[in-house]
Each structure stands twice: as C-alpha cells, then as structure tokens.
Design a protein around this nucleic acid. Structure first.
Lengths: 178, 178
DNA sequence: TGACCTTGCTTGAATCTTCAAGCGTTACTG
DNA sequence: CAGTAACGCTTGAAGATTCAAGCAAGGTCA
C-alpha cells in the first residue's frame, strides 16, 4: 500500500503492481524442501494413525486436546482455536468421533448456545492405545534425526511463522477461521 | 540429548518394549509449534489460491511442475513422485484440471500404458496470473519473517526430515506411495 | 507361445474438508 | 424492551483425498 510520491533511487522494490520479488534459487530450494517434508510427514502420520487407531492425525489431536483439558472437556470454539481449524470442520469431526463413542457433546450450563466436547473413557483408552506408536513415529521422523540445536531452531522458526499467521496480538483474532 | 538438565524422573529408558520415550516438555512445544505453523500456513495458501486462481495449493504445485518441465509435460508417475503424492490422487487431480482446460492428457508414444500430463496455454496463463500473489504470500508468511540464517537452518532441517521419510537411497523407492 | 509377475494408470466408494447459509442465543443500543 | 448485531454452533452440498480393486501393456522365463 505505499503511495509512492516520488521515486527514490532505492532498489527496495515494492511497487504495487510491478514485477514481484520472486524467490531466489536458495529460497526455492528451501520452500520445496519444506513442502516435501511437511507433505511426507503428514501423510506418514495420517497413515499410521488410520491403521493403528482408525482416525486421521487431526482427530488424534482433538483427543489429545481433550485429554489434557481439565475435566476432559472443552468448549467447541476453544477446541477449534487450539487446533487451528474452523468451527465447521470441528463440528463434522466431533460428529464422527461421537459416532465412534470416543467423544460426547454436552450442553454448556452457563451459555445455552455452547457445547462442550467431552472425552469418554472409551476415547481415552483409544488414545492411550495409539499414543506410543504415534510418539515413536514422530521421534523417528523428526526428533531422532535432528540435533538438539536444530530442534531449538525449528521451534523458534515455527513460532515465528505461526505468529505471523495468527494476529494473536491485541485480542484481534482470526474470525475463527472465517 | 539432555545431559545436565536435572530432570526429575530422568530414567534414561532404552528398554525395547517398555514405556515409550515420550516427548520432553521442550520437544512437545516444538512439535505443537510445528503443527500449528504448518496447519495455518497450508490453510492460508489454500484459501488464497482458491480465491485467486480457483484451485487448492497442491493443484497449483502441479501446474508449476509442468511449467518447469521440458515441453511442459511430464509422465504421470514422474509428476506424482515430484509432488510426493499417490498416483491415485494425481489421477483425480489431473482429471479435474483437465475439466478446467488447464491440463491435457496425451498418450505416451514409447509406452502405450503411459500418459503425459501436458500444461495447456490456458493453464499456463492461469499460472502466470496466480504466481505473483502466491509468491508474495509465501514471502510475507515465511521468508520475510526469518533471518537469512534461519532460512538456511530451515532448509537443512526440512531436508533431513524429508530424507528420513523417503528411502530415496539406493534405488529403494516408496512404492509410489503405497 | 503361454503362464505369470510387474508397471502405469484409473476408477468408485467412503471419508474428510471447505464454503456459504442457517438457527437459536446472547449482547448491545437507543 | 424491542430491534439489531454478534456469537456459538450446525448443516448440506461440492470438492478433495484415500483405499482397495481393477484393467491393459510390458517384461520374464519356461
């Protein structure tokens, strides 16, 4: 947005509709590596959890969130925020998990619009059964292959990226994902 | 990992089938940051491309691959390998892109089983139209927020992870994704 | 040649995700 | 306290992905 009064000789190109700043060779390599690694890793985790626990990675994440929450329950919107997904997606997902008997919905007493997702005992058992294999795979795929220093770097980098994507700042939230 | 950290229950387990090695506090933080960042970034890119070009991120990637290939065409399996996706997924995707007129299939002369995916002129135009906005978003979300050093680190880390996931070693390929 | 395995790609059904729209409930405002 | 906006969540349809199964062409070996 930059209303260019008069052009300075600065090479700092940011002209609104001019040639965009393409990625350099090096950046392209990094970007491709990022896409490849994340694609492969996500697919790998999905397949393992589908095989061992009958659910995709994201659904496993939902159970983990609930298991860690006080009372093993969480408001839907809260859960959606924690997982960085839309309410709609969550709604469908919980419907499926409920069908499996792993989660139950309960009305929120303080707000009649609200729903709590509640992790059932059965769901907790399934989670306990799936966790070791999952953690082991995450280790094998990531933590066992990186140095301590690299793990630290990765954490730092991912936080920077995530922060840029959520306006998590002064209360200005994404409209919980549109 | 973890030498003098005075962890409480630091039973340095290494037993084969005993309690699995859970993630440490720090590892958990990194893992969550990774999941959050990748989820948010992927969603962001998907939405932008869906809005600006009428296709998800992966489909855009397919067009890029084709555009860079000699003759703007690639064998299906080759394309699937480059994109790290299953042949089945590619088949469906190309069917959709073909319906849009962005891509065309053509028989491979040397192998009657083979198909080439070919990027049409129209597809190329769509790609040219979408590219600047996409690159700009990738920059804003990732490269503009990281130091040069961090970009280097990220590339290194992602290569390590990807390498661990594809047996790309001595010719032992994944059965092109199962 | 024929039996048999492999390769390259496609298909349909089941599942998952997205998008826009919708329905009650709650909060704000004059 | 009605009118209206915002919130919390759900729904259905369209699109995308996965999985297992399938088909035809190529390769191997007798």
């Amino acid at each position: 947005m930059e209303r260019m009064s008069t052009k300075k000789s600065a090479a700092r190109t940011e002209e609104p509709s001019a040639e965009p700043r393409w990625l350099t060779e090096g950046e392209q390599r990094v970007w491709r590596a990022y896409i490849h690694a994340t694609t492969l890793l996500d697919d790998t985790l999905d397949r393992q959890l589908q095989r061992d626990a009958g659910m995709p990675h994201m659904y496993y994440g939902l159970l983990v969130q609930l298991a860690q929450a006080p009372g093993r329950k969480l408001r839907m919107t809260e859960l959606a925020k924690n997982m960085k997904i839309t309410r709609s997606r969550l709604s469908h997902a919980v419907a499926r998990l409920e069908k499996n008997g792993w989660v139950r919905r309960q009305d929120c007493p303080s707000d009649k619009r609200g729903q709590n997702a509640f992790l059932t005992d059965e769901g907790f058992e399934v989670l306990k059964g799936a966790a070791p294999g999952h953690v082991s795979l995450v280790r094998k795929a990531m933590f066992d292959r990186l140095s301590e220093e690299q793990v630290r770097q990765l954490g730092e980098i991912m936080c920077v990226i995530a922060d840029g994507l959520e306006p998590t700042g002064t209360g200005a939230d994404l409209p919980w994902l549109r």
